[in-house]
């Protein structure tokens, strides 16, 4: 294989890998927002909780941070999901009974507090310098096999996540969720414990966000406090879900791949510009994506793929 083709192939693999990770995050948000109507603006916080949990327990022993248990990566994924879900439980317990605005503010709070901890607790997280030498599965193999196998892991996990959330959507549980989203008073009147169901959905979504964070940390072999930057880790995911169609898992996944392709495609274009302009182009890109979001909200509020209620037997 010639150098050029290898380059193209690696780019395609990288595009699909990040697209797959973003899909998992978007499905997580879909369970919270699309299924249940829970407004989470602190995706970055839960993402970072998962990423750091996995990074700390799977990396080799280090003086610079806590943990270093050198555990297998699969354990990292599981613990990432558990720790995000546990934090999600406390946030949910606290403010899920209040109106969505409060949940929104509280989730922003979680993300901000977590960023403060990451920056200040040098002994545990190595502060702003972040954690490096996080293991990536199959990293010892030659190019492009190493990248290809990691992509396979991401896609398998995405497939499992899709199957499970699709099952959840079509199950009686999913029906209760939609009932709560559309009319929580009515759901309560027929004897559903609205608060309990909402917390379940919130924890489910948070665990997927934690998983997405863990995958990102292992993919880049590095995680730092910038991971909690709201643009990349929260805003893009919202745009992906709104464009794909909230309430629809497949829509969420296609929205994620679509937006990520456009987002990184613009990067190829802006990389050609002189360095001074390239920096400015990044901000222009954020502005344009924001504008697209506004247009979608006004003109196509249901997204590309609208929610389909499961068929009756």
């Amino acid at each position: 294989m010639s150098e050029v083709w290898l380059g193209y192939l690696l780019y395609l693999i990288a595009l699909l890998t990040m697209g797959g990770i973003y899909s998992i995050l978007t499905v997580g948000l879909n369970i919270q927002w699309g299924f249940t109507g829970l407004f989470n603006v602190g995706i970055a916080g839960f993402f970072a909780i998962g990423a750091y949990t996995s990074a700390l327990i799977t990396s080799p022993i280090s003086e610079q941070h806590l943990g270093g248990y050198d555990l297998p990566v699969a354990f990292g994924f599981i613990f990432a999901m558990i720790s995000s879900a546990v934090i999600g439980y406390f946030v949910g317990k606290l403010c899920i009974r209040l109106r969505s605005d409060y949940l929104a503010i509280a989730t922003i709070g979680v993300a901000e507090i977590f960023r403060l901890i990451l920056k200040n607790e040098l002994w545990a997280t190595n502060g702003p310098r972040g954690i490096s030498n996080i293991p990536r599965p199959f990293e010892d193999l030659a190019q492009p096999w190493s990248q290809l196998l990691f992509l396979t892991i991401v896609l398998i996990i995405l497939f499992l996540v899709y199957i499970i959330s699709q099952k959840a959507h079509n199950s009686p549980w999913g029906r209760v969720m939609r009932a709560i989203r559309d009319n929580d008073k009515a759901a309560e009147a027929i004897g559903k414990n609205v608060e309990k169901f909402r917390i379940q959905a919130f924890m489910f979504g948070c665990s997927l966000m934690g998983l997405g964070g863990a995958l990102t940390a292992h993919y880049f072999k590095f995680i730092g406090p910038e991971a909690t930057e709201p643009v990349m880790a929260t805003f893009l995911i919202w745009v992906m879900l709104i464009i794909g169609g909230s309430g629809n898992n497949l829509g969420a996944i296609i929205g994620a791949f679509l937006v990520w392709t456009i987002w990184s495609g613009m990067e190829i274009f802006t990389a050609q510009l002189p360095p001074d302009w390239a920096v400015k182009a990044t901000f222009l890109r954020i502005f344009l994506v924001g504008l697209v979001l506004q247009v979608i909200l006004q003109k196509f509020p249901l997204g590309i793929f609208q929610e389909k209620p499961p068929k009756r037997d």
């Binding site: 109507g37 407004f39 603006v41 969505s100 605005d101 929104a104 709201p230 643009v231 805003f235 919202w238 745009v239 709104i242 400015k280 901000f283 222009l284 954020i286 502005f287 924001g290 504008l291 979001l293 506004q294 909200l297 509020p301």
Partner: peptide, 24 residues
Amino acid sequence: FSPTVILLISSFGIALMLRATVQL
């Protein structure tokens, strides 16, 4: 006349658009 949460999302987008404008 949309649900207020849609306005919340919109204002979140406006926040990043404003910041991008300042940075630009």
